[in-house]
Write a protein that binds this DNA or RNA. Structure first.
Lengths: 135, 135
DNA sequence: GTTTTGTACTTGTTTTTTGCAAGTTGTTGG
DNA sequence: CCAACAACTTGCAAAAAACAAGTACAAAAC
């Protein structure tokens, strides 16, 4: 580690252009399989995806599971540590909503709109849903 | 841009290991000069610092000013767009506070403690102070 | 039951970014 | 005048990312 600063601690773990996008896919787009992450809009390359999934699992943000029906499939899901990144992701979203102008998807309002109305409640509701889906 | 997702928008601008640390130095450590950023705990290298300062200015997160007394010195300060990254930085800090265990500086509690007590008020107070110092 | 497809990767190569050391240009205090 | 300072720039080696292709094994199709 480069320092004992809390911000730096987080940045060393997920301060790059890809890691939080994988978490987002798990949180908001209900993606669970390798191929689903691969086909996201940002077009992550396969070696980077494999690398980040391994790192995320190693640090305990996500965990791997077996699929009952399809033995060859591996199911990825969030841990509590991963779910707790929700406020970080939401704040980045809110900042972008303020400064990106009309460059963003119109669908953003579904989530961000509620956050602007009542942040604490909207966060709590979303976190509960994530816990039910993932833990 | 890789996509029209709000999270991705933010990550393209400050999704790396260094950019937010410079913003942090401006926000919490009252750093204003090139050499001050250079001497932070994380030891950024000089070419990366120059590159990030140029990017941050280009995107309107910070602005360059002249120092009255010392003509050779350049003063960096935050814009409103930069100040609005405060919640993002705080959320990363709160997350780290929860998961880093005892790896973090004890000084963290000065800021993070108040955030846990009354987030909205603490954020508003800090933002006001930043506006007075920078704008 | 054998070929084909699907899924989760790995490997190799090129390009880009980072990290490190040193050099450059104008400033200023003595 | 001159050494130290401040804000960079430049050059090069190392690491990481992007791109293209290949592999191993399960399952579906024929």
């Amino acid at each position: 580690m480069r320092s004992d600063c809390p911000l730096n601690f987080g940045l060393e773990l997920f301060g790059d252009k890809w890691t939080l996008l994988i978490i987002r896919d798990l949180m908001f787009f209900n993606k669970r399989y390798y191929n689903e992450f691969l086909s996201s809009a940002e077009k992550i390359s396969t070696n980077i995806l494999a690398d980040r999934l391994a790192l995320l699992e190693k640090q305990g943000f996500i965990c791997k599971g077996k699929d009952k029906e399809h033995k060859q499939k591996i199911v990825y899901s969030l841990t509590g540590k991963g779910i707790d990144l929700l406020p970080v992701i939401i704040e980045i979203g809110l900042w972008s909503d303020k400064y990106a102008g009309d460059l963003l998807s119109p669908h953003k309002e579904v989530i961000l709109g509620r956050m602007k109305q009542d942040r604490e409640k909207a966060l709590a509701t979303l976190k509960e849903k994530l816990k039910q889906k993932h833990l």
